[in-house]
Amino acid sequence: MQTDFPLFPDQASSFAFQVDALYFGILALCVFFALLVVILVVIFAIKYQRKSDDEVPRQIAGHLGLEIFWTAIPAVLALGVFVWATVLYFHLITPPPNAMEMYVVGKQWMWKLQHPEGKKEINELHVPLGESVRLTMTSEDVLHSFYIPAFRVKKDVVPGRYTNLWFKATQVGSYHLFCAEFCGTEHSRMIGTVHVLEPQNYEAWLTGGTANEPMEVAGERLFEQYACHTCHKADGAGRGPSLVGLFGKTVALEGGGTALVDEAYIRESLLNPSAKVMAGYKPIMPTFKGQISEEGIIQIIAYIKSLKAPELTRME
């Protein structure tokens, strides 16, 4: 089909083909059963048309074997499809460990996207071809849903929480970015474009634009601006724990239990510091709720991520 009247979406990500394969697999199953029933009932209608008004056909009560047969077959087929679809789902939601990190903030009615180098975009997202990209997303107001049909990916964007999504673009071009969860008046205009660029073009685009500071640099500036560094000293001598190399570790908590230091934990620690205090420290940190924007929090997270422990750096 030509582009002005397409009947099928582009296959522009690494798993578009697999999703489509499942789609056509189920479609074949459906067509088979639909045709089976339709052909049968049409034949019956023609063959067993009522001949006279007082005709009474033989009354067949039922057939246990048949019932078991047509209960078991759909059950087995349905479970087969379930396994196929669920295996695919786990593949779709599990990002590779080396994926590029990008950040998305949804608000009525626009998408704010940010690259790890600090470049910000509104309703446009540039990504390099063949590179895995992991998005960390949150919303400033209501529910949104981040949807790129050509990549076959979608995930709700929930206020108060981070959700994730990943993809690997496999075809250069521009694709629709939709908000799929109804979010108010301009819901249908909360759309954008994803540009897939060759890696060298992506680099050129990144450096060619306005000089934005990288996210961790912005984060570091905020870290000093809010005087975080006065307690969270790098050598661990401050009133709060050192944040160097902390990201991704599981820490013991005051009062028992452990917590994984991830994006959500850092965000919680900024907004509600006393909720999960690391073992050995006092709950003295003030809340920064209402003082730092969602973007600011993401920048601080990026900065904390960049604080790698020295031996880790050596190993890499």
């Binding site: 697999q18 999703v19 499942l22 679809a85 295996v87 695919l88 779709l92 849903s145 979608k154």
Partner: peptide, 12 residues
Amino acid sequence: SSMGLDIHLHDT
């Protein structure tokens, strides 16, 4: 009801 496919089809 297929989770892998519903990601694409949900809310469409």
